[in-house]
Design a protein around this nucleic acid. Structure first.
Lengths: 230, 230
DNA sequence: CGTGCAATTGATCTAACTCAACCAACGTGG
DNA sequence: CCACGTTGGTTGAGTTAGATCAATTGCACG
């Protein structure tokens, strides 16, 4: 493993492996990270039904987990951003519940579940950190579900996106926003056309700017007023 | 505390406090359950914004957590059935994210978070149980979210309901089903009328029977075919 | 036995879907 | 360098599932 790959120099380590465990040397984490995987855009880390063995933490890039339904639609369970853990929903059943795919050239750290749990047993603050992360995930799901109209869904999705991107890199003005209209729709239960139209409305209202793969939020307050419970 | 109230004689203890911790005497749990609260239909255990202090476990009855939106609609985040834990989403933020209300005369056990976590630290299998429960909750949310059409939503809701009720009391034919059409709608993002109409469709197809507060599933297979990823 | 709430059913209305055309960006190969 | 196909985004027209509004029935409860 290259030195500058280690948790010690990782810019998202404070998010994924928390401040609260500053007591531990970073090397304790480097030991449980079994490998860091460089991913090309479009390649998958695991697939639906694979046996659950590890969490993955996003080092850089953006990922999605999706399933293909019988009638051929792609359903995106969730997107994952830098510093975030992947695989919480697989612990209980013991297998991954979709394909994990990189939206851009990306890198994930593989964290074998068994070693992680073992470390949790000896480090209570790490255990609590895990529980908080899972708690946060549960709360986020609820928030997104409560918005029903298309403009509410898009607004809360954008707020969710920017707040999660801000966590690892504050004070951004422009965001790299690689997901397609179709992917956003497949995540929110809308068609790509409806996503486009809603973006157009938000653009005309000077609330956002979205060209190519770049997103700019001009009026966060207005977005918040369009959605519930941030 | 009355003897027959204790975890030892609780019919849902195997669900809420798991088989996996058989090593511990039940009294260890009785000690961390600070009180068992008998609730009348309609009364609330905690309210939106209250400081998070405890998980609650449903001993008997059915609960909902809901918020009232600015425009006066009731949004039901989730229902909770016997043997289930309540409050996972409150750990991270430190406050409860809605009102917890009993749908019927019910009983919950209050489990202070601090004592529970402390016990987790000394009992690894309990820690793992908690993580599995949270994992399960995350997976459930995803499943429900992936259904978009009203009949898919209702079908997956009914499957989810019956499978969760079956866990603590297997081989049921009829289910006590106290939630109103409006509440189901407020949970799934549908109107009460649409819920009624969808129930009528399912009844006419001989898939379910639903009169008063009683639900009967005649054709589970058909329900499963109507929804995704159970 | 009335009162009130929940469920049902019917008649519109509308937001989002579907289908389709068109455009812009990009990559490839001649 | 340009012609070409491919892919994703945008826009328009028509359709439809579910919302809304309204009336009616049924049931629980004092």
């Amino acid at each position: 493993m290259k030195l500058n790959d280690s948790c010690k120099y990782c810019e998202v380590a404070q998010l994924c492996l928390p401040l609260s465990v500053n007591a531990l040397p970073h090397s304790a984490f480097d030991e449980i990270v079994s490998r860091r995987i460089e991913m090309e855009k479009g390649s998958t880390v695991f697939n639906l039904g694979n046996t659950f063995t590890s969490f993955y933490a996003v080092k850089h890039g953006i990922f999605k987990i999706f399933i293909i339904t019988e009638d051929g639609r792609e359903q995106i369970e969730s997107f994952y951003y830098p510093g975030e853990f992947i695989g919480f929903d697989a612990v209980d059943s013991g297998y991954y519940r979709g394909d994990l795919q990189a939206l851009t050239d990306s890198c994930v750290c593989e964290i074998p579940y068994a070693s992680f749990i073992e470390l949790c047993n000896s480090v209570p603050s790490l255990q609590e950190h895990l529980i908080k992360l899972m708690s946060q995930r549960i709360g986020q799901n609820h928030c997104l579900r409560l918005n029903t109209k298309s403009i509410e869904k898009i607004a809360s999705f954008l707020i969710n996106f920017t707040s999660r991107m801000d966590r690892f890199k504050p004070n951004q003005f422009n965001y790299h926003f690689p997901m397609s209209r179709a992917e956003i729709g497949d995540h929110l239960g809308l068609t790509a056309e409806t996503v486009t139209r809603t973006f157009t409305i938000l653009r005309n209202k000077q609330i956002i700017e979205c060209s190519g793969k770049t997103l700019t939020i001009h009026n966060l307050r207005a977005l918040q007023k369009l959605s519930f419970v941030v």
